[in-house]
Design a protein around this nucleic acid. Structure first.
Lengths: 342, 342
DNA sequence: TTGTAAGCGTTATCAA
DNA sequence: TTGATAACGCTTACAA
């Protein structure tokens, strides 16, 4: 019932045993009589004893905490990724501590070091932080680290990632197969390698079809707001697209809002395809055609790799790559035939 | 360039000084010559030294990490709350570690203890975890803790919360003022005190107006999917409502999707009002009338309180309460006059 | 300006 | 079955 920190010493005094005995009982390690066991447990309970994680960690004991660094919490994609990792971690008896990226790369490096220096047993890094030099120092540290959706500088660290290229190809081909010829594209954030992959697929597909038109590409940033703006830009063109592929679902919803605000119907007047398959995609009207990553499986893979690395298994150069999948819903349909009665 | 952990001892050996001197230089504390400073810095850099957070924490040094426990990451409201806290924390030189609630209350208690036991300097708890007994033990621990949106068991711990009752009243009155008489309501999750407040306001308002009808209330859980279902339920009534107030924006969007799927137009055929003002609310079509919490200010208040508590200021019984605000957008309008030409 | 000694709370190793 | 001792890496007091 005391205040301030309750240590093993307090429990030991109350139970009338030595510190180490208390430790043994609470960790269920070593031998002790049933009587002491009962007395220690009773004392610990009465005082509300909780082990000091810092001291344990210093002694080499794992914290059962996995750290995860993501660019932002409010993006549904990253939130889902974090949820998947948290679920997988929880199943393995770990807690997941989620951090968002700071703007300052130096601070970033410090934080990563701090996490690995006693706070977390492993680290899931969803953004390629900083330089190749930083990755190299992480490699050398032998700390359990896994990179997620890393497409950048080569590294020996284990990587879990999901395809964006093939899925985007499938999306554009889907629109082509429906009969669309003018297909707009709204990119993702400039620094994102996933965004680069999606643009690359769109570009390759449109070039191959002889339909490439630079004016149909608008810069985006994965947000809904930018989707509204870019949607209006594309629909204001002299020859507006009959379909728009957006690099994220949020952006796609922005496009749909822009179209509807102009009195257009989706998919009758405009087909829209997104990317991510956020929960909302299935429960909106029209429901959204989109490309999905197998997020649950990715979360599982991240945690598995960390745990393997902790156990000393060789994870150097391991690359776990997941496919993406086109999910056709209501927001894509054949273009209205020109002159067709509305 | 070594692997494994680099400690002060390694740096000291390389720099040819004592451990404590390295510590002093790196912490910029105490006196030392410029020459040793340079040598130490060079050595630390070369070895890639990072301070071990566990050891520091054990010694009483703060970790500069604030913990935050939220029910889930994928809810936009909680994600925004976490973002706001992270921003505020960052400004004060802290990192924010976000944890999601586990189902197991015993594990929850352990985790909170672990966080306070050396990992985090303070804790922001967004859910009233467990019993009054648990709150009491937190109080006794004198640890820097702040409760967010706590409406439950009385406590002396500092609380930051935002109104849900007055905002909901304003929402329902807004619909009444527009001329609606049959106003449906979809509740939030059963265990949420915020949900309770919102239902209470709706009920009070409808009773006062003599318009209360139990059939117009449908259970929800804050999700979009449930909004679709409950929306269909309400719109299938013999006398369907002309307006629906949903306990969350996601649910409101589900209602809009359900209405649109039935060929109804929002707001012409059905007015919809949500709660939360998630980013999407402003960028959808129609944009969503909703009630907003001042999330940025709340995040600031949480961090301020933690820091005050850390500094030894008295925060016992402090209650910081924020108002909510009705934001009228496009999704609410007067009901169609019966018999009016469509 | 620099170094020595002690201790934070816990657990591994050895002894009783 | 139990206990004393040392050690994890770091920083605060005190000494040189």
């Amino acid at each position: 019932m005391s205040s301030e920190k309750v240590t093993l010493a307090h429990v030991a005094r109350l139970a009338g045993v030595s510190i180490i005995t208390v430790s043994r009982v609470l960790n269920n390690k070593g031998r002790f009589s049933e009587a002491t066991r009962a007395r220690v447990l009773q004392a610990a309970n009465q005082l509300g004893y909780v082990a000091n994680t810092a001291a344990r960690s210093l002694r080499g004991h794992p914290t059962q905490i996995l750290g995860m660094v993501i660019p932002e919490l409010v993006s549904p994609y990253f939130a889902e990724l974090a949820r998947a990792a948290a679920d997988a971690a929880s199943q393995m008896g770990y807690d997941l501590a989620v951090f968002t990226t700071s703007r300052d790369p130096e601070r970033e490096r410090e934080r990563v070091g701090a996490l690995l220096g006693g706070l977390a047993d492993g680290l899931i890094i969803v953004v390629p932080i900083g330089s190749a030099g930083f990755l190299a120092s992480l490699e050398r540290s032998r700390a359990p680290v896994v990179l997620v959706n890393h497409f950048g500088a080569p590294t020996h660290l284990p990587v879990v990632r999901a395809d964006s290229f093939e899925g985007s190809l499938a999306a554009v081909r889907h629109l082509l197969a429906l009969g669309h010829r003018r297909i707009g594209f709204i990119t993702g954030a400039a620094h994102s390698s996933q965004a680069t992959e999606r643009l690359r697929a769109y570009r390759e597909c449109m070039l191959a079809a002889g339909l490439w038109d630079e004016r149909l590409v608008r810069p985006g940033d994965f947000t809904q707001q930018r989707g509204v703006e870019a949607g209006h830009e594309l629909l204001s063109l002299e020859e507006p697209p009959t379909a728009i592929f957006a690099a994220s679902d949020l952006t796609a919803f922005g496009v749909i809002a822009a179209a509807q605000a102009r009195g257009l119907q989706v998919p009758q007047d405009l087909s829209v395809v997104g990317f991510d398959d956020i929960p909302t995609a299935a429960h909106s009207h029209p429901s959204l055609t989109t490309v999905a990553h197998p997020i649950q499986a990715m979360g599982q893979a991240m945690v598995d790799l960390i745990i393997k690395a902790k156990a000393g298994e060789q994870v150097r150069d391991v690359l776990v790559e997941f496919p993406s999948e086109l999910i056709v819903r209501e927001s894509s349909a054949p273009p209205r035939i020109p002159g067709e009665k509305v």
